[in-house]
Amino acid sequence: MTLPRIPLAGVIGHPIAHSKSPQVHGHWLKTYGLPGHYIPMDVSSEDLEQVLRALPKMGFVGANVTIPHKERVLDLVDQVTDRATLIGAVNTLIFRDDGTAIGDNTDGYGFIENLRQGAPDWQPAAGPAVVLGAGGAARAIVASLLDAGVPEILISNRTRVRAEQLREDFGTRLTVVEWVQAGNILEDGATVVNTTSLGMAGKSELRVPLDGLNKNAVVTDLVYNPLKTNFLAEAETQGCTTVDGLGMLLHQAVPGFERWFGTRPEVDDATRQAALA
C-alpha cells in the first residue's frame, strides 16, 4: 500500500524571515484541517535555478516567490501565464506531477480583491486612478486597474523614466506626471494608490501633499507595516474611504493555496489576525 504524499509548498526569497506567508498558509491549513506544510525558504540568487529544479522531486506542489527573485523566475519556469508575462514578474509557482513548473502572478488579483472587500462601493469606472510609484509592484497594480475598467491612470514616480516605461508598456490610458506635481493630480483621482515603500517602518515618509485629495476617493497603500500609514491616516481625516495593504497580501495568496491544497480559503478577520500574530 502506497501512502499519499503530503503536499508541500513554501515561499522563496532572500531574506525571507520577515515573510508573513507561512503564518497565513499555516492558519488556513489548520482551519480547514488539510494535510500539508508551507515553509519559508531562504534561497540565494546563485542557488535559485537548482532549488526550483529540485522542489517538485521533493514533493512540492508549488511555491510563492518574493524579492529579489520575482523577475528572474520568469526565465526559469517551463510556462508563464499571460498576466505574469504582462506584469513581468512571477509570485506563484505551480508544479505539475511531471515536474513542469508554471509561473503566475496573483498580485493584481490580490490588489483588486482587497479593494472590493475593504471598499465594497468602489467603482473602477468612477474616474481616473492616481498611482504613486512605478516599481515592480506598480506594474501589477496598473495592469489590474486597467483590467477592472479604470478609464485613465495618472502615474507619478520619483524617477520619471520608470513611469514612462510603464506608459510605453501599457498604452495611452496612462499619463505620466512629474513627481513634484503629484499633489496636484490627487483631486482628479477616484482611486489613489501608493505603490512605493515610502511610509513603511524604517523608510522615509511619503511627502506628497495630500490636501487636494477628493473626499469621495478610495485611497489604498501597499505598505502594511504600519497597518495605518500616515498616508492613510491623512486620507481618513479628509473623509476618504481607506483600505490598508495587508489585505492584498492575503488575497494574493488565495489562488495558490486553492491550487496546491484543493480548498479555496476565505480571507476573514481570523486570517488577518494570523498574519499579524
Rank of each mutant, 00 (worst) to 15 (best):
residue 129 A to P: 00
residue 28 W to H: 04
residue 190 A to I: 00
residue 84 A to I: 06
residue 125 A to S: 15
residue 98 D to G: 10
residue 71 E to Y: 03
residue 127 G to F: 01
residue 266 E to G: 00
residue 225 N to I: 13
residue 56 P to R: 12
residue 47 D to L: 06
residue 228 K to H: 12
residue 97 D to K: 07
residue 117 Q to H: 10
residue 100 T to L: 06
residue 46 E to P: 02
residue 71 E to M: 08
residue 261 F to C: 06
residue 275 A to N: 11
residue 268 D to N: 14
residue 168 E to Y: 00
residue 71 E to H: 15
residue 28 W to F: 09
residue 1 M to T: 13
residue 8 L to C: 15
residue 78 D to Q: 05
residue 216 N to F: 05
residue 15 P to Q: 07
residue 134 A to G: 15
residue 52 L to I: 09
residue 256 G to R: 03
residue 110 G to A: 10
residue 37 H to I: 05
residue 273 Q to A: 15
residue 133 G to Q: 08
residue 240 C to D: 12
residue 165 Q to V: 08
residue 185 I to R: 00
residue 100 T to P: 08
residue 49 E to R: 13
residue 117 Q to S: 04
residue 105 N to Y: 06
residue 83 R to G: 04
residue 119 A to G: 09
residue 170 F to W: 06
residue 196 T to P: 06
residue 148 A to W: 08
residue 209 P to S: 13
residue 140 A to V: 04
residue 143 A to H: 07
residue 188 D to W: 01
residue 22 P to K: 07
residue 240 C to S: 14
residue 144 S to L: 02
residue 149 G to L: 06
residue 7 P to M: 05
residue 171 G to N: 11
residue 16 I to R: 12
residue 46 E to L: 10
residue 74 L to F: 07
residue 70 K to L: 04
residue 64 N to C: 14
residue 176 V to L: 07
residue 20 K to P: 00
residue 225 N to Q: 13
residue 191 T to W: 02
residue 181 Q to V: 12
residue 208 V to S: 14
residue 75 D to R: 13
residue 235 A to I: 08
residue 14 H to A: 13
residue 266 E to L: 03
residue 45 S to A: 15
residue 269 D to L: 08
residue 179 W to A: 03
residue 86 L to C: 12
residue 185 I to D: 01
residue 88 G to S: 12
residue 104 D to C: 08
residue 161 V to D: 09
residue 264 R to Y: 02
residue 135 G to L: 10
residue 124 P to V: 12
residue 59 G to T: 02
residue 207 R to S: 15
residue 113 E to F: 05
residue 36 G to L: 14
residue 60 F to M: 15
residue 68 P to Q: 04
residue 220 T to V: 13
residue 208 V to D: 12
residue 46 E to V: 08
residue 152 E to Y: 00
residue 142 V to E: 10
residue 71 E to L: 04
residue 74 L to P: 15
residue 176 V to A: 09
residue 138 A to W: 10
residue 113 E to A: 15
residue 226 P to H: 10
residue 89 A to C: 04
residue 73 V to Y: 11
residue 209 P to F: 11
residue 193 V to A: 02
residue 103 G to I: 05
residue 86 L to K: 15
residue 216 N to K: 14
residue 192 V to M: 03
residue 227 L to K: 12
residue 252 Q to E: 13
residue 273 Q to I: 00
residue 145 L to D: 10
residue 71 E to W: 02
residue 105 N to K: 03
residue 45 S to I: 12
residue 125 A to V: 13
residue 12 I to W: 05
residue 53 R to I: 06
residue 61 V to N: 11
residue 60 F to V: 10
residue 89 A to T: 09
residue 108 G to L: 02
residue 103 G to Q: 09
residue 219 V to H: 15
residue 56 P to F: 04
residue 258 E to N: 09
residue 147 D to K: 14
residue 12 I to A: 08
residue 150 V to P: 09
residue 188 D to R: 05
residue 259 R to A: 15
residue 178 E to V: 03
residue 184 N to W: 00
residue 190 A to V: 00
residue 107 D to G: 03
residue 204 S to K: 08
residue 164 E to T: 04
residue 222 L to R: 07
residue 103 G to R: 10
residue 105 N to T: 04
residue 218 V to C: 00
residue 143 A to N: 10
residue 104 D to G: 11
residue 54 A to P: 09
residue 255 P to F: 02
residue 130 V to E: 01
residue 257 F to Q: 00
residue 202 G to L: 11
residue 159 T to I: 12
residue 155 I to E: 14
